[in-house]
Write a protein that binds this DNA or RNA. Structure first.
Lengths: 146, 146
DNA sequence: TACATCCTTCGTGTTACACGAAGGCAAGAG
DNA sequence: CTCTTGCCTTCGTGTAACACGAAGGATGTA
């Protein structure tokens, strides 16, 4: 049996977050002691782990709750759960693509700055007047145009 | 000269977002007509493009504002801007790693469900009692353990 | 007994907008 | 010359997922 503080430390979550999850009904097996303090047994800890993982996958609290409720209902909901995970996977793939473009863009931008700092681009014409446009012309047009 | 509606459509932003950015001071060159309507010239549009890109890179409005203000100051701030972009690149790399793990996890989970649905795992012992733990034992322990 | 430490609930603050209300201005229809 | 339409404005509240702090109860120790 663990307290909020203990599970928070165990799972590297904030105590606020742990209370928030329990209050939102994401940990159905949560217990209370005689002073109304939250108590986590092994099952509750496992639920919390599941919630944490699905959150890291980008699922909203609402969706996680839906998914958890389906899990409780048992095998008859497996198809439905599968479809939720499928949709989430599609989202994750999109996010992966975006993360890649972002890294590419920022790499190009660091190189752009490195060149300026090293003096490779000696003539920075009129940067004070069009600072962002200047960068856009140099970097964004080549990278941001995909 | 473009109205809010026009730039919003041009850059695929919501009108709400465009007004929000101007109100936050991210578009210093923004103009107003005699009826106080926002008007965007080419410079303002370029600023807006820059803001949009940095937002996609995961920068907060505050950080974008800081960066924009440095840009206005001119060449003397190049080093500082470079360091901001460097830090942002580190963040982006982290996010890329997370995105990869998330995709991996969700791929494994879809396969897990596919196996169940295809009946490969015939004995689902006591899933109603430990639904999430069941999944955790099957999938998370292998993937989530990194 | 006093204090420190844990827990609780409750209420507000945060970010980056979304949304709707209420109203100003201009142009075309009748 | 009004009426409607359509754009724009500001202002105010709602949202997600917590963070944070206040106020207060129960417990343990000096």
């Amino acid at each position: 049996m663990y307290t909020v503080k203990e599970v928070a430390k165990m799972l590297d979550l904030s105590e606020h977050a742990v209370r928030y999850y329990t209050d939102k009904g994401l940990i159905p097996s949560i217990l209370r002691d005689q002073n109304n303090n939250r108590l986590f047994n092994e099952e509750s800890v496992n639920w919390l782990i599941g919630v944490k993982i699905l959150k890291q996958c980008g699922m909203s609290i609402e969706d996680i709750k839906t998914y958890a409720e389906l899990s409780i209902k048992g095998d008859s909901t497996i198809q439905e759960r599968y479809e939720i995970i499928l949709r989430q996977r599609e989202l994750a793939l999109l996010q992966l693509q975006e993360a890649k473009s972002t890294v590419d863009y920022l790499e190009a931008k660091t190189n752009y700055y490195l060149n300026i700092i090293k003096g490779v681009i000696a003539d920075s014409s009129n940067p004070a007047k069009w600072p962002l446009k200047y960068e856009l012309n140099e970097v964004w047009d080549t990278i941001g145009a995909k």
